[in-house]
Design a protein around this nucleic acid. Structure first.
Lengths: 186, 186
DNA sequence: GTCTATATCAAGATAGAC
DNA sequence: GTCTATCTTGATATAGAC
């Protein structure tokens, strides 16, 4: 009932490609590299996906679905509550989808032409607004972007495990971003 | 006396390559792309530099020299003073060498095999230690890396100018990283 | 110091066998 | 569903003219 003995080749491709895209970039990863690590041929890759870019799209779709869910949960809350929850949920999201998060924040911006990535970038922007509690102050926006990018960057490398990262990232994000006097500790 | 009318082709190559490497990555930038923007031929590029990788090395050398100077200035200070100054000087350094900083923190780590980059990575680590005030606490190290990476990432994009970024980055870095009760405001 | 070839190689992608 | 060719393109790099 564990159903992990034999993952589908398609899922295996996504796993390997996600890891390599996040580590050495989209252009830095060749189909050859992915095929070798998956243990199949380039042609087998291209049976499962219509091209390298389609692999990236599939990975980003995963991240986008999760991000959409997060935004839906924050909808309707007042600004301070949304900010606090946004920080916590964002950290959890990044820890769950480490590689996909790195893709959204680092490789997707390089494809600004591609309309398929428009929605996920717009959602990342929305999240940033919620985390600044809607502030128009450039300093607040810069602070939020600094922390969001920093979190994603740190989460990429496998030096730290999620159990260590979670409290540390929550702490730094709250100290840096939450302006109200309460909630500064936990 | 302005001496900006005609920069050398070599400097122009470095400027353009630095911008493109930071924006779309090392692998994502072709000699063709650089040559077009510089307004010369690929062959002219390869007259000035022995290869694409040599251009990257020259850019990183600039960043490394600045980083070495920064570390020398911090040498001998006690931990809290070194931490405060490290934060301020790091922000100034990143703003002065935006693209080079992005290279050190994002593309150089992908060349972990290359021994030529060993020293600059070691120096970036030293800086991280100074900024944690020597703490062994994983949470402190994670916080420092989060902020350092975040600062570099935000500084890459030209949406903000240095005058706006400097106070905002200093503020977020201090709030996130300085543990002593004083100095939390300025 | 810069350009016009051109060599060489690896990448993404396709066709068709198994 | 996966493999063995093979095609096409574009990238780095070299040689030699100007």
């Amino acid at each position: 009932m564990v159903r992990m003995v034999r993952v589908s080749t398609r899922d295996e491709i996504l796993r390997v490609a996600g890891e390599q895209f996040a580590r050495v970039g989209f252009k830095g990863t060749s189909l050859q590299d992915i095929a070798v690590e998956v243990g199949c041929s380039k042609a087998a890759l291209l049976y499962h996906f219509a091209g390298k870019e389609q692999i990236l799209l599939a990975l980003v779709a995963t991240a986008e679905a999760a991000l959409t869910g997060l935004l839906a949960d924050l909808d309707g809350l007042d600004a301070p509550a949304a900010q606090a929850l946004a920080i916590e949920r964002f950290v959890d999201l990044v820890l769950e989808f480490r590689r996909e998060a790195a893709l959204v924040y680092e490789v997707v911006p390089q494809f600004h032409s591609e309309p398929a990535f428009g929605t996920v970038l717009a959602e990342a922007d929305k999240l940033c607004v919620l985390i600044t509690a809607g502030s128009e102050d450039p300093a607040a926006i810069i602070a939020a972007q600094t922390v969001l990018h920093g979190i994603v960057n740190v989460a990429i490398d496998d030096k730290w495990d999620a159990a260590e990262l979670r409290p540390a990232l929550l702490r730094v994000a709250r100290r840096a971003l939450i302006t109200t006097p309460h909630h500064d500790k936990d």
